[in-house]
Write a protein that binds this DNA or RNA. Structure first.
Lengths: 185, 185, 185, 185
DNA sequence: GATGAATGAGCCTTCATTCAT
DNA sequence: GATGAATGAAGGCTCATTCAT
């Protein structure tokens, strides 16, 4: 792939993520292309359909989830409590809610997600480790499945309409805190 | 034919609620009409615009919220813990997530909701009482605003894609439990 | 026909004329029924289709055209010039433009107009007499066919959008004057 | 494909003009697209709304009005009478009636027309010159405002139903003649 | 007879997707 | 490879018309 093509691809994924997290599941691909500064045709060259594009964005997210997990593991020894908190809030700040649910609906069913490099497995693997540590350290009660945890974060980080942010500033962060506390033993 | 019309109206609201809870904020009114078994024109006869329709559905929800609250108050004496739990889960089962956010977005701002019989005030008033009891009984920590609570339930009951229910049966209930526990003192 | 039915019929025709002259050819029958203070069903009981209704309204207009012509004839002796002027302006004030053209398009073709009591013939007969007088008195040049005259009035009295009345008050009357002058020998 | 797009745009404007002049202000954009031989989406690519499309057609008309005026000025010296007659009939043959009033209605008010290249000013400027010459040459009486003149042409060239052309061939031209004569001193 | 609810075709507009340049 | 024009299927909404009460 040419260098500029790779750059376009990255720009598209970034734009997609940003718009998805900001404006929710209904973003139009044209808007994404515009935000990325390329033509709509370019988007479709890189991703032959809406599904594939969303899957691509999810790949990006998986990458960052890995980063958050790695960071968590790296700083666990020094201060487990802080690491755990940063981990959960870090995940939440990725705001993958809209993305995860949007995709899931038709991507999961069609097996696309499995055929695309095992994104799900990769993500799950990383989370399993951290959740294990948290459980051992007493931050997490027993019986919390990774997938439930993951889907929970998704549920509470789906973008809320603008007026919610105005009326209830920090609502998302508040929810994350409630979620964490609710998961403690 | 008055009776028929009333039945249609009810069917439309029911269908709207069901589809909204199931498929999210983007339901097409055509689909709602079809689900209700009437023509699209009939929907528009009863509700002259999308907004008005959503407002209508929200009215229904408000009604049921009132019912849940009343039920809670009625059984509080006998067993506060059970009443509180049934209350929160009852609210969640209404699945007003998609609806609440969708409406809020443009209805709230335009004041429609205020001009429509004070739906918001009514709902808030009812919740205030129950939350007060819960706080006194030690089920709820201090400083939980009614609106945050309400929006929290909305956030965790926004429709999730079908596959979530398959992969994680009872996810919604699980989240509600986490939410409740997270709100305890 | 019952007395109240006849009254309804008359109200409908009046309302139709008024709205047609005011808001142009696109008036909805529902609006007409509302303006007349009856249900839409009542309109359809009296006139089985839009066409028939418009034809009915045209019948009314024909009546009034007859009135204008009769008045003209009655006062001709006293002051032919004034009578002629009042005649032309009187016709114009009937504002049958929207009506005549709206109907014409499909009513004429289907022969409806002939089967409905010879409205056209009646109108034409009345105009022929007056135009004959006017020609003889030197107000009208030769060769002006009655139908052209009639259609001319229609053309210049079709309702113009509101902004025209604001920008060019009296435009319609001005046009009628130009029309009259243009028809003089 | 630039060339194709330009051709499509032109076809759309042509079709719009034709249908507007023929069938009046209520033409459906779908019909226009069909007449132009393109999909409805293509129309909307070139003109993002009905207003913009009508404005586009009006731009075309303005162009041709300019042409008619220029032609008039060019041949004025040789034969002012013929030039004046060709000018008025030329304007009338543009049949901008439906268009002018339709646009005026919402475009004028919203200032769109001013922001769109000063269409109105351009048109008025051209007409002013010609009307001035005509007045000086004794073809036009004093006090005829440009806008009244323009609106007058519009009024008498609004599309008449088909049957008028059948029953009264040349009615439009006849009206224009009457109009001209009526405007003479 | 009167009423107004129900219906569906049709309008304007948006958006995913394809394809010629 | 990139671009953006073209397409048509929906979606929200209106209105003539029918029909049960």
């Amino acid at each position: 792939m040419r260098a500029d093509a790779a750059a376009n691809r990255r720009d598209l994924l970034d734009a997609g993520w940003r718009l998805l997290a900001q404006h929710g599941e209904a973003v139009s691909l044209r808007a994404v292309a515009a935000e990325a500064g390329v033509g709509i045709g370019t988007l479709y060259r890189h991703f032959p359909s809406r599904e594939e594009f969303l899957l691509g964005v999810f790949g990006e997210v998986a990458e960052r989830i890995g980063g958050v997990a790695a960071e968590c593991l790296a700083s666990w020894e020094r201060d487990p409590g802080a690491a755990w908190s940063r981990f959960v809030h870090g995940l939440a700040e990725l705001e993958y809610g809209a993305l995860a649910f949007q995709m899931g609906n038709y991507v999961y069913r069609s097996g696309l997600i499995d055929s695309a490099g095992g994104v799900r497995e990769r993500v799950e693997g990383e989370l399993v480790v951290v959740l294990g540590l948290a459980r051992a350290a007493g931050f997490l009660r027993d019986g919390v499945e990774v997938r439930r945890f993951f889907a929970g974060i998704a549920a509470i980080t789906r973008p809320m309409p603008d007026h919610v942010d105005e009326m209830l500033p920090g609502q998302s962060g508040w929810l994350v805190d409630v979620f964490m506390r609710g998961l403690a033993p």
